[in-house]
């Protein structure tokens, strides 16, 4: 089924790009984290994410069968071809922004991967099963940090509130499904967007509730769509850095 295959490739690239871009942003913290313990923790999360991205890219590359391997997919596609959600491409900001960004993503990621462990596509189910363990820990960590900052000092609370305010508008893009995902979900392959969104909402309400952080109203659509490659301006710059060597020396072996 060609349609199904194209849908699947598209869906895999979303999963891959989400993990990859999030991991890339975490790499930017290297050497700059607020404590040595956090250096370790952030790099651990980044390693998990880039590792997951590699698994998704490899599967996508096999299905594409157009000569591109995982590296070509990660390092030579243009920003309009990237399928990640807008949230993960946002700049790191201060530690509150990074924490909020990770938490909002982790909650979505864990519920998505949990659903995917039951995928009828065995390869997806296997990659997701490994990813669930990692994402469970990611969510535990980022959730705890939301609480620490949300209910720490007055300054940290203000920063956390500002971070949520800054990032919330991207959660619509994070949670939205589309026809491709719908078709795959109906075929038992992809996660159901509405179900993930509901689980996400419950997790966010629980963690925010524990520290009296208000949960904003659902964010409204604002005419960009990561799944269609309609990104904020931040992604292009991020890719220029991430893809530099592959772009400057096309086809080289590293």
């Amino acid at each position: 089924m060609t349609d199904n295959k194209n849908d699947l490739i598209e869906y895999l690239l979303r999963l891959a790009d989400n993990a990859m871009i999030n991991g890339q942003r975490l790499c930017e913290w290297c050497g700059h984290a607020p404590a040595l313990e956090e250096e370790m923790a952030l790099m651990n999360v980044a390693l998990d994410l880039v590792g997951q991205a590699r698994n998704w890219y490899e599967y996508a590359a096999e299905l594409l069968a157009d000569g591109r391997d995982a590296d070509r997919l990660a390092f030579t596609r243009d920003e309009r071809d990237f399928r990640n959600t807008l949230l993960v491409e946002q700049p790191n900001g201060d530690y509150a922004v990074t924490t909020a960004k990770l938490f909002l993503f982790d909650a979505w990621h864990l519920h998505t991967l949990q659903a995917l462990t039951a995928s009828k596509d065995e390869r997806i189910a296997a990659i997701a099963a490994k990813g669930v363990k990692e994402a469970t820990y990611h969510l535990r960590r980022s959730g705890e940090w939301v609480e620490r900052l949300g209910d720490g000092t007055e300054e940290s609370r203000q920063r956390m509130l500002a971070a949520i305010d800054e990032l919330w508008r991207f959660t619509g893009d994070l949670l939205a499904g589309d026809a491709i995902q719908q078709r795959l979900a109906e075929a038992g392959i992809a996660a159901d967007a509405a179900a993930v969104a509901a689980a996400w909402q419950a997790t966010v309400e629980q963690v925010f509730g524990a520290t009296n952080l208000p949960v904003p109203q659902p964010s409204s659509y604002f005419y960009l769509d990561g799944k269609k490659g309609l990104h904020t301006e931040h992604l292009g710059i991020l890719l220029a850095e991430m893809q530099f060597l592959q772009r400057a020396y096309p086809g080289a072996t590293w």
Binding site: C30, G31, L47, V50, A53, R54, E241, F244, L245, A252
Partner: peptide, 29 residues
């Protein structure tokens, strides 16, 4: 960690990126 951190965002392949990240993390450790 810093001289290597300078290239961790520009590593050329997924494998090299993962290796470099793990190495830098070891240094912090």
């Amino acid at each position: 960690m810093l001289p290597e951190g300078n290239w961790v965002t520009r590593a050329p392949t997924l494998k090299r990126k993962l290796q470099l990240m793990a190495k830098i993390q070891d240094e912090a450790g």
